[in-house]
Every structure is written in C-alpha cells, then in structure tokens.
Nucleic acid binder design. Structure first.
Lengths: 162, 162
DNA sequence: GACCTGCATGTAATAATATAACATAACATG
DNA sequence: CATGTTATGTTATATTATTACATGCAGGTC
C-alpha cells in the first residue's frame, strides 16, 4: 500500500501528520490574520496527538500542572477558535474533537468512527456531499452545514483479512 | 400541495401525526413484546408534541408536578427505551430527541434541521445511505450506524417564494 | 518609552446534559 | 400468593459547557 496516503488506524509515522497539521495551521492563521497563540497551538497539538477524537476535559487535564490548573473556558475558547478556523472538527456523537485534514470547507464533515479503537477517519466524499445537497434542495432546504457520522469497526480492527 | 404527505414546518393537522405515532408505537411494542408503559407513552407523546427536537430536561419539567418531581434517570430510561425500539431519534448536534417516522431501520438517520424554527425533517435517502455504505466499504469499514445531520433553513422559513 | 486599544487568558461560579448505584414498586406467571 | 423480572423512584455525582467579570499582553500611535 502506498505510504504516501496515511490511513489513520494503520501504523504510520505520526509525527509527519502532526508536523503537517501544525504547519498548515500556521499558514491558515497567517493568511487569515488570526493568531495561533501558545495555548491554541498546544491544544491543536494535543488533539493531533493521534487520530482519535479528544475530549475537552482530557485536554484540560493534559494542559494542567499540579500547581497551574487550566480552567474549562480556556480550553473551550481554544477549541472554538480552532473550530472557527477549520483546524479541527467536533464529533457530535462523541462530544469530542479531532484534527481536520482539509481546513477549507469546514461546514462539510464526514467521519468514520471506529467503536473499537476510537480512530476517526475523515472522508472527503464530494459525491455524498452533493447528494445530500440535492436531497436538501428537493425539500426546499437551504444548507448551512452538513455532517455525516458513521459508527462501526475500522479495517485494522476487523483483522487483516476481511 | 398534497395534504396526504405532511411536511413538518408547514401547517398541518398535527394530531394526526401524534395519533399515528402513538398507534405505531403501540404496534411496534406489541409485536416485539416490549411494554409501552405509562411513562414511556407520556414521554413519546411529549416528543411528538411537534416536529421540533425536545431536550431531556424540558421533558423532565413537563412531566413534573409541583409536588411530584420526576428525576433525570426516569426520563433518560424512557428515552433509552424509545431509542432502542426505534420510536425516536437522538439529534446529536442538538442533544435533543425527535419522533421517528420510520420505526424500522433505526441505525440510519438523516435529518434536515432548521436553525430558525428548529423543525427537524427526517429524510429517507436510500441513495445517500447506500452511497455512505459504499464509501465506508471502500475504507474497509464495517458499519453499525450512520447519521446525517444537515443544518440550515427550512422551506417555510425562507419564505413562500425562493 | 508611555499610552491606549483590542484581543487573549485567568478565575469563580454555575448551567446543561447524563449516569451510577441502590431501593422500591408493579407485573407476569407458575 | 410466592417468585423472578422488569420498571420506576431516589440520591448522589459525573460529564460537558457557558456566563460574567477581572487581568494580562501584543501592537500600534504619539
């Protein structure tokens, strides 16, 4: 299998994902004139610690020191910033946050969520998105945002065969 | 427009929806040998009070009397029962619950959610569902359940024209 | 540099959503 | 009616998120 396309859930050199994500974030913010502050950078980095969705209060813990506790608003504000800038997604069915691979059209989200290993795979199903749009139009519905969340078992978790 | 197909969001004779839903629920439970108890029936009825999603704690309030307070577990248990029997859906992006129009395949949910009037329209997009399934299969992903939640503005809320 | 301004973060309190654990009641059935 | 099962009641608490107000810090302007 081509190494170039990373499949979350399979072993891979994750620090490439992380580095990529951070570089992209920097670029996006600089282009938009928004500030990727230390706190926001740390939160994004923690979320990109893997391909699992991360919970706000887990971030809180990870950010806190015994002496220096971080409080919820701090984390939620960083999350809001990252969401607004399309750098992360919220997985509604998990109340958790995951790094975005395509920080452009962030009102379209499509996820495969593994119930075993919790890995979240972001799909870029143009065809699904446009079919959803068409269906909505048939109802005279004006779309703001669309989300697809699929739960199940990812390929590595079903075993090598199948 | 044909009166026979009710469009949530448009004026209609809602007690037909309600009556339908309750009759279906009764049938489903009787067929499955599960019990539609008084509490479950009341919760379902409240949820079917309209085509908006209803929050658990709003149900709590509606069920409580000044003297006789209903507690969270009671409501959440009723909700769980109704979910398990495919009589309601949970709207993840709202933390709220809405009546199900198709109490069969309840691990496929597709909703149009109006940001203005909060009406939830359940779609039955076979084509969307199968495209999602196909896309998941391409990733070697084994589906348990799939959810589509689309936010935007429903037809009546965009005005009569458009 | 001194000063302002605006954005970012800190802090305290609390709201909103949901579950665990155990006690009691209602129901079905031999 | 005794018994096991399912449903509900009750208390406490866990989890997720926001409001409101105080403080700090980065960048521009004089």
């Amino acid at each position: 299998m081509d190494d170039h396309f990373i499949k979350p859930g399979y072993p891979h050199d994750h620090h490439v994902c992380l580095a990529d994500a951070m570089a992209t974030a920097k670029a996006v913010c600089s282009e938009r004139g928004t500030r990727l502050t230390e706190m926001r950078r740390r939160v994004l980095e923690l979320i990109w610690g893997g391909h699992q969705a991360v919970k706000a209060y887990d971030l809180l813990e990870m950010l806190s020191e015994p002496d220096r506790k971080v409080r919820p608003p701090t984390v939620y504000r960083a999350l809001q910033f990252l969401l607004e800038n399309g750098l992360i997604h919220r997985i509604e069915s998990l109340n958790a946050y995951v790094g975005c691979r395509v920080p452009l059209s962030h009102h379209i989200s499509q996820f495969l969520i593994c119930n075993r290993c919790a890995t979240v795979i972001e799909m870029a199903g143009e065809d699904i998105a446009s079919m959803v749009t068409r269906e909505a139009e048939n109802h005279g519905f004006l779309i703001d945002s669309q989300t697809v969340e699929v739960h199940g078992v990812c390929a590595p978790c079903t075993g090598p065969q199948t």
